[in-house]
């Protein structure tokens, strides 16, 4: 019927996606290690309305009269900017300062990555303690093994250096190194990581292979801060402004549909 109906519909659908993204950001405003997302749009292809176009003086123009057909969502990009470090009472809480990610072994045995350093200790059958995420997935060290702490060590005695080396204080308050370093991994393109549930990220072709900070040369190493958690990097004021923009844009597109509809109804009334 009229192109404008579909153009406006594409605008409304895009803005819906934008609101979905904003709502998810706001819902995760207190999620540890959450990275905000943003919907980005691109224009759709153009059609030629009229081949010959002239200026007001009647001179021929080099391009024909073109009309665009609306918009689409080009990408939803995650913004991996550092979130604030929040003080935590937990001795096994860790925050990353830098571009690294923690590695965890998921239920299916594959390795996933996360910025959420809210770790817990789980007691195994042998009485040893394993560092796990709050969902119980083991956290991996730089060699890809689970991090084990001998049984009987009080959680308050666990010490993690800024390089990620883990150890504990014995009864004489001497540092006992466990010879394990918390694995930190970087990606060529973190925006290409696939987001899974439970704050986990999965490697994709777009992100590139995980680069182990311990073995890959020329990386800017990140540091681990024990007793801190990385807060969400969602900026509520930004999201509110984005919400206003998205909602108003949605509204205007619906107005364009109404106007097109009115025009069609008038065309309909021509024949009585």
């Amino acid at each position: 019927m009229m192109r404008s109906l579909w153009s406006a519909a594409s605008g409304m659908i895009s803005q819906q996606t934008a609101v979905d993204t904003i709502a998810n950001n706001l819902a995760n405003v207190n999620t540890t290690g959450y990275k905000n997302e943003k919907a980005e749009f691109k224009s759709l292809l153009y059609q030629t309305l009229q081949t010959r176009t002239t200026t007001a003086n009647g001179e021929e123009k080099p391009i024909s009269a073109q009309v665009g057909l609306g918009t689409r969502v080009a990408a939803i990009t995650s913004n991996f900017v550092q979130g604030p470090h929040l003080d935590s009472e937990s001795y096994t809480a860790m925050a990353i300062d830098g571009d690294g990610f923690f590695a965890v072994r998921g239920a299916d045995g594959n390795t996933y990555y996360t910025r959420n350093g809210d770790f817990k200790l789980s007691v195994g059958n042998d009485g040893n303690l394993t560092l796990v995420t709050s969902d119980g997935f083991p956290v991996l060290d730089s060699r890809g093994n689970a991090i084990e702490i001998p049984g009987g060590v009080n959680a308050s005695k666990i010490q993690v250096t800024s390089e990620g080396a883990i150890g504990y204080l014995n009864a004489q308050n001497n540092f006992v190194d466990l010879n394990q370093t918390i694995g930190l991994f970087q990606f060529n393109n973190p925006a290409g990581l696939e987001k899974m549930s439970n704050s986990l990220l999965n490697v994709t072709d777009a992100s590139g292979q995980a680069l182990n900070e311990a073995t890959t040369p020329n990386l800017v190493l990140s540091t681990v801060r024990q007793g801190y958690l990385e807060g969400s990097n969602v900026q509520v004021a930004d999201e509110m402004v984005n919400l206003i923009v998205a909602q108003r844009a949605y509204e205007m597109n619906s107005k364009a549909i109404q106007a097109s509809d009115d025009m069609l109804s008038q065309a309909n009334q021509l024949k009585r």
């Binding site: 009229m2 404008s4 895009s14 009309v67 364009a256 097109s260």
Partner: peptide
Amino acid sequence: MINQQNRMDILTNNLANSATN
């Protein structure tokens, strides 16, 4: 009428892209 319809198409494309970079 046809001309106004074409103008409407162009205008709607502007509105649909009011949030496009």
